[in-house]
Amino acid sequence: MFFSEMTARDTLKRTKQKMTEYQIGILEQLNAIEVDAHWFRRVFHTFAASFLFYYLLPDEKWINLGKIVLPIIIVACMAVVEYQRIRGGLDHHRFFGLRNYEKKRPASYLYFGIGVLVLFLLFPQQIAIPCILCASFTDPIIGESRYYLGKKRAYLIGFVVSLCFFLVSWYRADWWILLLVCLLGATGVLIGEAKKLRFVDDDLMIQMLPAILLLLLWQGCVALGVNILPPKMILPL
């Protein structure tokens, strides 16, 4: 009886020890991948700024149709892939650069895609362009400066960078509109980045929050009889 108890206890102890070793091994492996994927994720973000090529596409009937249909098809394909991955139909390890918390929820690239799609289809380019620029550049800049300067300074840098993006995009507007739009937009970006939600990624929030704030401002001003939108920044080829 005593011996059998000892053996059972030993086995349990040994199993526990092995489980811990196994867990540590897996964590090390994941961390290695996370570290390796660090710059890959950053470059993926900055790459997304090239989607602005969309506004250069010529204004012709069939191209305009493609401008609506193609982005929807691309995002739908991404959604199908993500659905399959979450269901287990596709191996999680085949996706490079996914974070641990993205295992059981849609990955951030899908949120980014949805954000860009909504901006392209529902918002004027004067609002969409700075929001896409912020998601592409401000997010990785905040992420990088957080490592070296801490959270507060990183957010301050992110705010200033976003402010510059809105300034560049609305430079043809009146000074009071420019001031208002820059402050509102940059604040929206900062809240979108800082506020972490469980099921909504910051890649979507960082685009949608400033866009919605600016849309409300624009529509509010239109209701008052003032159109604050500056001329288009990108003209079709």
Binding site: W39, F40, R42, H45, T46, F47, F137, V168, Y171
Partner: peptide, 21 residues
Amino acid sequence: DGELFLGLLLLIGNLLFDIPF
């Protein structure tokens, strides 16, 4: 002029992150 600003932004922004990548 907006396209000039955007072109420069894309170029510099991407180069800054491409080198460490």
